[in-house]
Simulated assay, not measured.
Amino acid sequence: MINLARVKLHLRVDGDEEDTVIAGYFEAAKSHVAMHCDRILVEAEPAGPDEMGLTPDVEQAILLLVGHWYANREAVVIGTISTAVPLAVDRLLWYRKRF
């Protein structure tokens, strides 16, 4: 189960100054994963084909999204050489996506 404490551990964040920001990213990441896979996220065992449980791979995808958004808060970075890094989230969720 993912909660704010686990997300903060993943981000290596101590203290509570960033809790509101992190909680916003966490909720957005859950929503993003649900929409990406075209399913409703449930913490219990999925009851139907329109539901998806929070299995370890789904949880990891959520944590990776939160980490990415937390570290990269702006859409553009000026003054650096940039290279696209493949995001593991897509791979973690690929087989769960409905085509």
Rank of each mutant, 00 (worst) to 15 (best):
M1P: 13
M1A: 12
L4G: 10
L4S: 07
V7H: 08
L9T: 12
L9R: 14
L9P: 00
H10Y: 11
L11H: 11
R12K: 15
V13M: 03
V13N: 03
V13I: 14
G15Q: 10
G15E: 11
G15S: 11
G15I: 03
D16E: 15
E18H: 11
D19E: 12
T20K: 14
V21M: 12
A23C: 03
A23Q: 15
G24F: 11
Y25P: 01
A28Q: 10
A29V: 02
S31G: 12
V33T: 05
V33S: 07
C37W: 05
E43W: 10
A44D: 13
E51Y: 06
E51T: 08
M52H: 00
P56A: 02
Q60F: 01
Q60P: 00
V66Q: 10
G67R: 07
H68D: 04
Y70N: 04
R73F: 03
R73G: 07
R73T: 04
E74G: 06
E74Y: 05
I78H: 12
I78E: 08
G79D: 01
T80R: 11
I81F: 08
S82P: 00
A84E: 05
A84V: 09
A88L: 10
A88G: 15
A88S: 13
R91G: 07
R91C: 01
R91F: 06
L92W: 10
L92R: 04
L93Y: 10
L93C: 02
F99S: 08
